[in-house]
Amino acid sequence: MEKEWLQFDRFKDEYRVGARMFVDKARADYGNSEDEIICPCIKCRNSEHHHFEIVYEHLVTRGMDPTYKIWICHGETGSESNHEDLEIPETYKLFKDLCFQHDENDEDDEDVDDTIETREAEILNLVREAETPLFFGCTNYTKMSASVALLKMKARHYLTDIAFDDILRTSRSFLPEDNTLPESLYSMKKLVKAFDLGYEKIHACVNDCCLFRKDLQHLENCPKCGASRWKLNESSSKIQKGIPAKVLRYFPIIPRLRRMFAITETAEQLRWHSNNKSQDGKMRHPVDALAWETINRRWPSFASDPRNIRFGLATDGFNPFHDLRSTYSCWPVILTIYNLSPWLCMSKESLMLTLLIPGPKQPGNDIDVYLAPLVWKDNLFPPTYPPSPYPIPPF
């Protein structure tokens, strides 16, 4: 299909003629009984059907979505070389795996194909919306990156919701008319929330005695110290049932590992340790350490499969409130994947935040209570994976 008309200004005759030819061809080949076609403008982004005249108007007033390179929704198939050059965004790969991981056993066989096709379209629209430039020609920010940057600024400077909405309205007036910056804090949170990887809230004893999970999930008081599970109102000394006194935030490991193994390049990187052990006796990576050899000897079945993950765990306390007068201590727990090469295993992208232990005081020797969700027996793969024949080493 001819695309040269996209190089012209939207108000030039060449652009309008090209847009008219595009709309007429799409109407003839893919229009429905009401002469509606999929609109590829920068705002509709192939997610809405409109009358072909409205689509033509959108293309002239708004412009074509710049991320829509191959017009697959309008009949273009492309050559093999085009498909080889087409790079699927990493965002799409990760988000696709996240969306499908909970649906694998929920559908009947006859509904699987329809469900997959529907979810594929939803995911593609979400990713395309997130990766749309902030305005036509903008290369520094996308709709998603601008939203994340502004939300970070809101948190750093303690801006109120009303003040933030005012900033958004003013910022939109500075930008070109076709900008994609969300109009309100609610819209911005809704966009970011769609890509939330999620975490679990686990109630904890205020004295760090236990987590209210598994057998203790329905208890109202700590079985060890008797402290209430719920928050105590300091002014009235009444228990506020339903409001937990302490909450541990747990970011599940398995979904992230599944996403990593779903990408060919990353799956190969996770086997780096099996072929790159030092040959001169010098230690350049944990694979060259004595501890690694000890694990291999003690659990040979586990060591025989290079895909098995070896983690390093690190934690430390910090004050999240930027106030030196406060003694509040919050403890994030970070996992490092030692399967990766030295230049990857310690990179920011490879560090996995798995637990966020709340304050106000440090957990001390009771930190093992909070590490319980990380025990591998609690993180067995779901039934979609065949059971592993290898013994599980203790945590």
Rank of each mutant, 00 (worst) to 15 (best):
E107Y: 11
M153W: 03
A245W: 07
L270N: 06
S184N: 09
E200L: 13
G137H: 00
A19R: 08
R258A: 09
P391C: 01
A19K: 09
H322M: 04
S81N: 09
T142P: 08
L313S: 08
K190S: 15
P176I: 11
I123N: 15
N221A: 02
H49I: 05
R27C: 10
D165A: 08
Y385W: 11
L356S: 09
G18L: 03
T115V: 14
L6A: 09
Q240R: 14
L211C: 00
K214G: 07
F135S: 13
Y250D: 05
D113V: 10
H273T: 03
I38T: 14
N379F: 02
K190Y: 11
N179D: 12
S388K: 00
S347K: 04
P363D: 09
T266F: 04
I334H: 12
L124T: 15
P320Q: 02
Q362S: 14
P383S: 08
T170G: 06
D29F: 10
T77R: 02
L232V: 15
G317W: 06
E293V: 02
M144D: 09
L159Q: 01
W292T: 10
K361A: 13
N46Q: 07
R298M: 00
N221S: 01
E14G: 02
E36W: 00
H58C: 06
G312Q: 10
L175F: 13
K361F: 12
P300H: 01
D108G: 14
I392Y: 00
K152E: 06
I254D: 03
W71E: 04
S278M: 01
W343K: 02
G312L: 07
Q7V: 01
V17C: 02
P182Q: 12
D111I: 01
D161F: 04
K282A: 12
T327C: 05
K246E: 10
C222D: 06
L6S: 05
T118V: 04
A28F: 10
R27W: 06
P383L: 12
A303W: 00
L270Q: 12
E183V: 09
P373T: 03
L159S: 05
T264V: 00
E34D: 10
C99N: 01
F100C: 04
C209T: 10
T336W: 14
G137C: 06
N319K: 06
N125K: 14
Y390L: 01
A267D: 11
D35E: 10
D29I: 04
R169M: 10
L94C: 07
G364N: 00
